[in-house]
Amino acid sequence: MNVLIYLLPVALLLGAAGLVAFVWALKNGQYEDMDGAAQRILIEPPGSKAAAQAPSSRPGEARPPGAETSRALLHSAVAACDRDPMHHHDPGR
């Protein structure tokens, strides 16, 4: 039971530190753009190394199988998120 004398203040201090960190994150805008990072990771910015190394879409040049299909799916998914910010993939739709 003597251990509770030490554990209770430690638990209260850790809880207070977590609350302070959460309030700090709210005030500094850490929760402002929750969907932006998820969308930015899917889109290659123009001029990046990956965009420069991507296969060309000029007629007559070989492209990996499914390249156009995956690009079309990506753009449709991003467009759906742009239309409806609360959009969640539902295979039953």
Results as ranks from 00 to 15, higher is better:
residue 53 Q to L: 12
residue 53 Q to P: 13
residue 53 Q to M: 08
residue 53 Q to V: 06
residue 53 Q to Y: 07
residue 54 A to M: 09
residue 54 A to L: 03
residue 54 A to R: 08
residue 55 P to Y: 06
residue 55 P to T: 10
residue 56 S to E: 11
residue 56 S to Y: 09
residue 56 S to G: 08
residue 57 S to V: 05
residue 57 S to Y: 13
residue 57 S to M: 12
residue 57 S to L: 11
residue 59 P to K: 15
residue 59 P to S: 14
residue 60 G to P: 00
residue 60 G to N: 02
residue 60 G to C: 02
residue 60 G to D: 07
residue 60 G to Y: 07
residue 61 E to C: 08
residue 61 E to Q: 14
residue 61 E to W: 13
residue 62 A to W: 15
residue 62 A to K: 10
residue 62 A to H: 12
residue 63 R to Y: 05
residue 63 R to T: 15
residue 63 R to W: 15
residue 63 R to H: 07
residue 64 P to D: 05
residue 64 P to R: 08
residue 64 P to M: 05
residue 64 P to A: 14
residue 64 P to I: 07
residue 65 P to M: 00
residue 65 P to L: 01
residue 65 P to T: 00
residue 65 P to V: 01
residue 66 G to F: 07
residue 66 G to N: 01
residue 67 A to Y: 15
residue 67 A to L: 12
residue 67 A to W: 15
residue 67 A to R: 12
residue 68 E to K: 02
residue 68 E to R: 01
residue 68 E to T: 01
residue 68 E to V: 00
residue 68 E to L: 07
residue 68 E to S: 09
residue 69 T to M: 00
residue 69 T to C: 03
residue 69 T to Q: 03
residue 69 T to K: 04
residue 70 S to C: 05
residue 70 S to H: 08
residue 70 S to Y: 08
residue 71 R to D: 04
residue 71 R to K: 06
residue 73 L to C: 11
residue 73 L to T: 07
residue 73 L to F: 04
residue 73 L to K: 13
residue 73 L to S: 06
residue 74 L to W: 01
residue 74 L to S: 10
residue 74 L to K: 14
residue 74 L to M: 06
residue 75 H to W: 07
residue 75 H to F: 12
residue 76 S to Y: 03
residue 76 S to N: 02
residue 76 S to M: 02
residue 76 S to K: 08
residue 76 S to D: 09
residue 76 S to F: 01
residue 76 S to E: 14
residue 77 A to V: 06
residue 78 V to W: 10
residue 78 V to K: 05
residue 78 V to A: 14
residue 78 V to T: 14
residue 78 V to N: 09
residue 78 V to H: 04
residue 78 V to S: 06
residue 79 A to G: 00
residue 79 A to D: 07
residue 79 A to E: 09
residue 79 A to K: 10
residue 80 A to C: 00
residue 80 A to M: 10
residue 80 A to L: 04
residue 80 A to H: 05
residue 81 C to M: 14
residue 81 C to S: 14
residue 81 C to D: 12
residue 82 D to T: 03
residue 82 D to M: 06
residue 82 D to R: 11
residue 82 D to P: 04
residue 82 D to E: 13
residue 83 R to L: 10
residue 83 R to Y: 10
residue 84 D to N: 11
residue 84 D to G: 02
residue 84 D to Y: 09
residue 84 D to W: 14
residue 85 P to I: 09
residue 85 P to T: 02
residue 85 P to Y: 13
